[in-house]
């Protein structure tokens, strides 16, 4: 009788331990597999932000206009001159880092914060900016306009 009960308790104990072992093992598998599965799920932004950005087709960019393009985590201003040239500059004003815009009425790149003006070569021509805007490289392949970091 005694023996039997002892065997029983040992049995139940074993079962309990095995349960923990099995459950723990499964939980552990979960803890390992979850991050891996999440890692393999394609992220929202599925490409590395890189040294070049495709802007669009040349015919879609009006002459005598400018637009802000997100280049990585920095804004870039893409300007098309009245003559049809396409140029790109960092859109960060060299004075206090506001974002510059294209002003059709001046035919210049203009910073709203302190009225800094840059010509269409990025040179600071009036107002407080201490130096020109950094220029980026623009390539046009067929109709496709792309901006590249200058290396």
């Amino acid at each position: 009788m005694m023996e039997k009960s002892e065997a029983q308790t040992s049995d139940s104990k074993r079962d309990f331990l095995k349960l923990i072992l099995g459950g723990g093992f499964l939980a552990w598998i979960g803890a390992v597999l979850y991050p891996i599965a999440a890692y393999l799920k394609p992220p929202k932004q599925n490409e590395v932000e890189v040294s070049s950005v495709k802007v669009g087709l040349l015919k879609d960019i009006e002459k005598d206009s400018g637009q802000i393009v997100k280049f990585g985590n920095k804004p870039v201003i893409l300007v098309r001159t009245a003559a049809g040239d396409v140029r790109a500059f960092s859109a960060v004003c060299t004075h206090l880092e506001c974002t510059v815009t294209y002003r059709k009425d001046f035919g210049m790149i203009w910073c709203a914060c302190h009225n800094g003006k840059y010509d269409l070569n990025g040179r600071n021509v009036s107002g407080p900016p201490p130096r020109p805007l950094d220029e980026l490289r623009v390539t046009i392949q067929g109709e496709e306009v792309s901006i590249f970091k200058k290396s």
Binding site: L17, I20, L21, G24, F25, W28, A31
Partner: peptide, 9 residues
């Protein structure tokens, strides 16, 4: 999880 598993083991 790992601690429980280790102790059980």
């Amino acid at each position: 999880i790992i601690t429980i598993l280790s102790i059980a083991l």
